[in-house]
Write a protein that binds this DNA or RNA. Structure first.
Lengths: 130, 130
DNA sequence: AGGGAATATGCACGGGTAAGAATATGCAAG
DNA sequence: CTTGCATATTCTTACCCGTGCATATTCCCT
Protein backbone atom coordinates (compact mmCIF):
# COMPACT_ATOMS: atom_id res chain seq x y z
CA UNK A 1 0.00 0.00 0.00
CA UNK A 2 1.60 3.23 -1.15
CA UNK A 3 1.14 6.70 0.25
CA UNK A 4 -0.33 7.84 -3.06
CA UNK A 5 -2.92 5.09 -2.93
CA UNK A 6 -3.90 6.16 0.57
CA UNK A 7 -4.44 9.72 -0.58
CA UNK A 8 -6.38 8.52 -3.61
CA UNK A 9 -8.72 6.73 -1.25
CA UNK A 10 -9.08 9.80 0.94
CA UNK A 11 -10.08 12.20 -1.82
CA UNK A 12 -13.73 11.24 -2.00
CA UNK A 13 -16.29 12.32 0.56
CA UNK A 14 -18.17 9.04 0.72
CA UNK A 15 -14.94 7.15 1.35
CA UNK A 16 -13.88 9.65 3.98
CA UNK A 17 -17.17 9.17 5.78
CA UNK A 18 -16.81 5.39 5.58
CA UNK A 19 -13.29 5.43 7.01
CA UNK A 20 -14.32 7.87 9.69
CA UNK A 21 -17.15 5.59 10.78
CA UNK A 22 -14.88 2.57 10.80
CA UNK A 23 -12.54 4.26 13.23
CA UNK A 24 -15.21 3.63 15.82
CA UNK A 25 -15.49 -0.08 15.01
CA UNK A 26 -16.65 -2.46 12.30
CA UNK A 27 -19.90 -2.00 10.38
CA UNK A 28 -21.99 -3.91 7.88
CA UNK A 29 -23.09 -2.51 4.55
CA UNK A 30 -26.70 -1.99 5.54
CA UNK A 31 -25.63 0.14 8.48
CA UNK A 32 -23.53 2.26 6.17
CA UNK A 33 -26.65 2.70 4.06
CA UNK A 34 -28.69 3.80 7.05
CA UNK A 35 -26.11 6.20 8.39
CA UNK A 36 -24.80 7.70 5.17
CA UNK A 37 -28.17 7.68 3.40
CA UNK A 38 -26.57 6.85 0.10
CA UNK A 39 -27.68 4.19 -2.43
CA UNK A 40 -26.44 0.65 -1.92
CA UNK A 41 -24.48 0.49 -5.14
CA UNK A 42 -22.57 3.62 -4.28
CA UNK A 43 -21.54 2.39 -0.86
CA UNK A 44 -20.71 -1.08 -2.11
CA UNK A 45 -18.45 0.25 -4.82
CA UNK A 46 -16.57 2.58 -2.54
CA UNK A 47 -16.08 -0.27 -0.08
CA UNK A 48 -14.71 -2.40 -2.92
CA UNK A 49 -12.40 0.44 -3.92
CA UNK A 50 -11.09 0.68 -0.36
CA UNK A 51 -10.75 -3.09 0.01
CA UNK A 52 -8.81 -3.49 -3.23
CA UNK A 53 -6.29 -0.96 -1.94
CA UNK A 54 -6.03 -2.51 1.49
CA UNK A 55 -7.62 0.28 3.50
CA UNK A 56 -10.41 -1.92 4.77
CA UNK A 57 -10.92 -5.63 5.35
CA UNK A 58 -14.16 -7.56 5.09
CA UNK A 59 -15.69 -10.74 6.38
CA UNK A 60 -19.03 -12.37 5.79
CA UNK A 61 -21.53 -13.05 8.55
CA UNK A 62 -24.56 -14.80 7.13
CA UNK A 63 -26.51 -12.32 5.10
CA UNK A 64 -24.14 -9.52 5.92
CA UNK A 65 -20.72 -8.30 4.94
CA UNK A 66 -18.87 -6.70 7.81
CA UNK A 67 -16.15 -4.18 7.08
CA UNK A 68 -13.39 -3.00 9.37
CA UNK A 69 -10.12 -1.13 9.26
CA UNK A 70 -7.05 -3.34 8.82
CA UNK A 71 -6.15 -5.14 12.03
CA UNK A 72 -2.52 -4.22 11.51
CA UNK A 73 -2.51 -0.97 9.49
CA UNK A 74 0.75 0.31 8.07
CA UNK A 75 2.25 3.40 9.73
CA UNK A 76 1.24 5.71 6.88
CA UNK A 77 -2.39 4.66 7.07
CA UNK A 78 -2.35 4.92 10.83
CA UNK A 79 -0.96 8.44 10.72
CA UNK A 80 -3.43 9.59 8.10
CA UNK A 81 -6.42 8.11 9.87
CA UNK A 82 -5.40 9.90 13.05
CA UNK A 83 -5.02 13.11 11.05
CA UNK A 84 -8.42 12.58 9.47
CA UNK A 85 -9.97 12.04 12.88
CA UNK A 86 -8.65 15.41 14.02
CA UNK A 87 -9.63 17.23 10.85
CA UNK A 88 -13.26 16.17 10.68
CA UNK A 89 -14.06 16.87 14.30
CA UNK A 90 -15.82 20.12 13.42
CA UNK A 91 -17.29 19.23 10.05
CA UNK A 92 -21.10 18.85 10.20
CA UNK A 93 -21.45 15.82 7.91
CA UNK A 94 -19.05 13.81 9.98
CA UNK A 95 -20.56 14.86 13.29
CA UNK A 96 -23.94 13.87 11.92
CA UNK A 97 -22.58 10.46 10.94
CA UNK A 98 -21.19 9.95 14.41
CA UNK A 99 -24.51 10.92 15.98
CA UNK A 100 -26.49 8.68 13.67
CA UNK A 101 -24.19 5.81 14.47
CA UNK A 102 -24.63 6.34 18.20
CA UNK A 103 -28.39 6.36 17.84
CA UNK A 104 -28.26 3.24 15.68
CA UNK A 105 -26.20 1.54 18.37
CA UNK A 106 -28.71 2.48 21.04
CA UNK A 107 -31.53 1.08 18.95
CA UNK A 108 -29.64 -2.16 18.39
CA UNK A 109 -28.86 -2.50 22.08
CA UNK A 110 -32.60 -2.36 22.80
CA UNK A 111 -33.37 -5.23 20.41
CA UNK A 112 -31.50 -8.45 19.90
CA UNK A 113 -30.05 -8.54 16.38
CA UNK A 114 -26.40 -7.84 15.79
CA UNK A 115 -27.12 -6.40 12.39
CA UNK A 116 -30.21 -4.89 10.83
CA UNK A 117 -33.29 -7.06 10.50
CA UNK A 118 -34.45 -8.09 7.02
CA UNK A 119 -37.24 -5.97 5.61
CA UNK A 120 -40.01 -8.55 6.24
CA UNK A 121 -38.66 -10.78 8.93
CA UNK A 122 -41.97 -12.41 10.04
CA UNK A 123 -40.40 -13.62 13.23
CA UNK A 124 -37.21 -14.84 11.63
CA UNK A 125 -35.24 -12.38 13.69
CA UNK A 126 -34.16 -14.72 16.47
CA UNK A 127 -33.18 -17.48 14.10
CA UNK A 128 -31.07 -15.10 12.05
CA UNK A 129 -29.14 -13.95 15.04
CA UNK A 130 -28.04 -17.43 15.95
CA UNK B 1 -10.27 25.10 0.98
CA UNK B 2 -12.00 21.80 1.75
CA UNK B 3 -10.49 18.65 3.17
CA UNK B 4 -11.37 16.80 -0.02
CA UNK B 5 -9.49 19.35 -2.10
CA UNK B 6 -6.44 18.88 0.10
CA UNK B 7 -6.50 15.14 -0.41
CA UNK B 8 -7.02 15.62 -4.15
CA UNK B 9 -3.85 17.66 -4.20
CA UNK B 10 -1.96 15.05 -2.23
CA UNK B 11 -2.76 12.12 -4.47
CA UNK B 12 -0.13 12.77 -7.11
CA UNK B 13 3.55 12.02 -6.58
CA UNK B 14 4.86 15.14 -8.28
CA UNK B 15 2.64 17.33 -6.13
CA UNK B 16 3.67 15.45 -3.01
CA UNK B 17 7.30 16.06 -3.84
CA UNK B 18 6.62 19.75 -4.46
CA UNK B 19 4.81 20.20 -1.17
CA UNK B 20 7.47 18.27 0.67
CA UNK B 21 10.18 20.51 -0.72
CA UNK B 22 8.22 23.63 0.14
CA UNK B 23 8.05 22.60 3.78
CA UNK B 24 11.71 23.54 3.92
CA UNK B 25 11.16 27.00 2.42
CA UNK B 26 10.15 28.73 -0.79
CA UNK B 27 11.49 27.69 -4.19
CA UNK B 28 11.40 28.97 -7.76
CA UNK B 29 10.25 26.88 -10.70
CA UNK B 30 13.70 26.35 -12.14
CA UNK B 31 14.87 24.90 -8.85
CA UNK B 32 11.97 22.50 -8.86
CA UNK B 33 13.09 21.47 -12.33
CA UNK B 34 16.62 20.84 -11.16
CA UNK B 35 15.64 18.90 -8.06
CA UNK B 36 12.72 16.88 -9.37
CA UNK B 37 14.21 16.36 -12.82
CA UNK B 38 10.83 16.64 -14.45
CA UNK B 39 9.91 18.68 -17.54
CA UNK B 40 9.02 22.34 -17.06
CA UNK B 41 5.45 22.01 -18.26
CA UNK B 42 4.73 19.21 -15.83
CA UNK B 43 6.01 21.16 -12.84
CA UNK B 44 4.33 24.35 -13.93
CA UNK B 45 0.96 22.69 -14.29
CA UNK B 46 1.12 20.96 -10.96
CA UNK B 47 2.05 24.26 -9.33
CA UNK B 48 -0.95 25.88 -11.00
CA UNK B 49 -3.15 23.05 -9.76
CA UNK B 50 -1.90 23.59 -6.21
CA UNK B 51 -2.21 27.36 -6.44
CA UNK B 52 -5.79 27.26 -7.72
CA UNK B 53 -6.72 25.19 -4.68
CA UNK B 54 -4.87 27.38 -2.22
CA UNK B 55 -2.17 24.94 -1.20
CA UNK B 56 0.64 27.17 -2.43
CA UNK B 57 1.12 30.88 -3.01
CA UNK B 58 3.31 32.51 -5.61
CA UNK B 59 5.08 35.78 -6.18
CA UNK B 60 7.17 37.06 -9.03
CA UNK B 61 10.79 38.06 -8.62
CA UNK B 62 12.17 39.32 -11.91
CA UNK B 63 12.55 36.38 -14.22
CA UNK B 64 11.41 33.95 -11.61
CA UNK B 65 8.23 32.81 -9.98
CA UNK B 66 8.73 31.89 -6.37
CA UNK B 67 6.36 29.44 -4.73
CA UNK B 68 5.76 28.91 -1.05
CA UNK B 69 3.30 27.26 1.29
CA UNK B 70 0.50 29.55 2.48
CA UNK B 71 1.72 32.00 5.11
CA UNK B 72 -1.35 31.24 7.19
CA UNK B 73 -2.39 27.69 6.32
CA UNK B 74 -5.71 26.36 7.57
CA UNK B 75 -5.57 23.76 10.35
CA UNK B 76 -6.43 20.88 8.02
CA UNK B 77 -3.60 21.71 5.66
CA UNK B 78 -1.22 22.16 8.54
CA UNK B 79 -2.11 18.80 10.01
CA UNK B 80 -1.81 17.01 6.71
CA UNK B 81 1.52 18.58 5.84
CA UNK B 82 2.87 17.49 9.21
CA UNK B 83 1.55 14.01 8.57
CA UNK B 84 3.12 14.00 5.13
CA UNK B 85 6.43 15.07 6.59
CA UNK B 86 6.38 12.08 8.92
CA UNK B 87 5.27 9.62 6.29
CA UNK B 88 7.88 10.39 3.63
CA UNK B 89 10.82 10.35 5.99
CA UNK B 90 11.89 6.89 4.85
CA UNK B 91 10.83 7.02 1.21
CA UNK B 92 13.84 7.16 -1.16
CA UNK B 93 12.44 9.67 -3.66
CA UNK B 94 11.74 12.20 -0.98
CA UNK B 95 15.08 11.71 0.75
CA UNK B 96 16.75 12.20 -2.59
CA UNK B 97 14.83 15.43 -3.11
CA UNK B 98 15.91 16.69 0.28
CA UNK B 99 19.52 15.83 -0.47
CA UNK B 100 19.46 17.46 -3.86
CA UNK B 101 17.96 20.56 -2.36
CA UNK B 102 20.68 20.73 0.28
CA UNK B 103 23.37 20.40 -2.37
CA UNK B 104 21.69 23.05 -4.49
CA UNK B 105 21.65 25.34 -1.51
CA UNK B 106 25.35 24.80 -0.90
CA UNK B 107 26.10 25.59 -4.52
CA UNK B 108 24.05 28.78 -4.36
CA UNK B 109 25.72 29.87 -1.14
CA UNK B 110 29.07 29.65 -2.91
CA UNK B 111 27.96 31.98 -5.72
CA UNK B 112 25.98 35.17 -5.51
CA UNK B 113 22.60 34.68 -7.23
CA UNK B 114 19.47 34.07 -5.25
CA UNK B 115 17.99 31.96 -8.01
CA UNK B 116 19.53 30.03 -10.87
CA UNK B 117 21.51 31.96 -13.47
CA UNK B 118 20.09 32.29 -16.98
CA UNK B 119 21.52 29.85 -19.51
CA UNK B 120 23.76 32.43 -21.22
CA UNK B 121 24.22 35.18 -18.68
CA UNK B 122 27.20 37.00 -20.28
CA UNK B 123 27.93 38.83 -17.08
CA UNK B 124 24.36 39.86 -16.37
CA UNK B 125 24.44 37.94 -13.15
CA UNK B 126 25.19 40.77 -10.77
CA UNK B 127 22.62 43.06 -12.32
CA UNK B 128 19.97 40.39 -12.04
CA UNK B 129 20.57 39.85 -8.40
CA UNK B 130 19.96 43.47 -7.51
C1' DA C 1 11.60 48.49 -29.82
C1' DG C 2 13.46 44.00 -29.75
C1' DG C 3 15.69 39.79 -28.14
C1' DG C 4 16.09 36.29 -24.90
C1' DA C 5 15.03 33.93 -20.53
C1' DA C 6 11.62 31.91 -17.25
C1' DT C 7 7.17 30.47 -16.84
C1' DA C 8 2.28 29.77 -18.16
C1' DT C 9 -1.42 28.26 -21.17
C1' DG C 10 -4.18 25.93 -25.11
C1' DC C 11 -4.97 21.77 -27.48
C1' DA C 12 -5.17 16.82 -27.88
C1' DC C 13 -5.26 12.22 -26.18
C1' DG C 14 -5.42 8.34 -23.21
C1' DG C 15 -6.81 6.63 -18.81
C1' DG C 16 -9.09 6.52 -14.45
C1' DT C 17 -13.27 7.21 -11.94
C1' DA C 18 -18.02 8.43 -10.00
C1' DA C 19 -22.75 7.48 -10.61
C1' DG C 20 -26.95 4.93 -11.67
C1' DA C 21 -29.71 1.15 -13.78
C1' DA C 22 -29.95 -3.47 -14.32
C1' DT C 23 -28.40 -7.84 -13.22
C1' DA C 24 -25.80 -11.40 -10.82
C1' DT C 25 -24.08 -13.77 -6.70
C1' DG C 26 -24.05 -15.80 -2.10
C1' DC C 27 -26.56 -17.10 1.90
C1' DA C 28 -30.36 -18.80 4.89
C1' DA C 29 -34.92 -20.63 5.74
C1' DG C 30 -38.59 -23.42 4.47
C1' DC D 1 -34.51 -26.42 -4.72
C1' DT D 2 -36.95 -22.30 -4.49
C1' DT D 3 -37.61 -17.92 -2.47
C1' DG D 4 -36.21 -13.70 -0.32
C1' DC D 5 -32.66 -10.83 1.43
C1' DA D 6 -28.00 -8.53 1.46
C1' DT D 7 -24.37 -7.40 -1.29
C1' DA D 8 -21.46 -7.37 -5.50
C1' DT D 9 -20.64 -6.79 -10.39
C1' DT D 10 -21.39 -5.27 -15.16
C1' DC D 11 -22.34 -1.74 -18.42
C1' DT D 12 -22.86 2.82 -19.78
C1' DT D 13 -22.22 7.81 -19.63
C1' DA D 14 -19.94 11.79 -18.43
C1' DC D 15 -16.27 14.06 -16.42
C1' DC D 16 -11.73 15.10 -14.58
C1' DC D 17 -6.90 14.51 -14.74
C1' DG D 18 -1.92 13.68 -16.17
C1' DT D 19 1.14 14.35 -19.88
C1' DG D 20 3.48 16.33 -23.92
C1' DC D 21 3.86 19.48 -27.80
C1' DA D 22 3.54 23.87 -29.34
C1' DT D 23 2.79 28.53 -28.41
C1' DA D 24 1.89 32.56 -25.58
C1' DT D 25 2.98 35.63 -21.81
C1' DT D 26 5.76 38.34 -18.76
C1' DC D 27 9.71 40.24 -17.50
C1' DC D 28 14.68 42.05 -17.95
C1' DC D 29 18.31 43.95 -20.50
C1' DT D 30 20.33 46.50 -24.38
Amino acid sequence: MSLIQIYQCLCDETRLRILHLLQDGELCVCHFQQILEEPQVKISKHLAYLRQRGLVESRRDGYWMIYRLPVRPCPELDANLACLHDCVREIPVFRRDTDRRARLRARLAATSPICCTPAKPKGKKKALVV
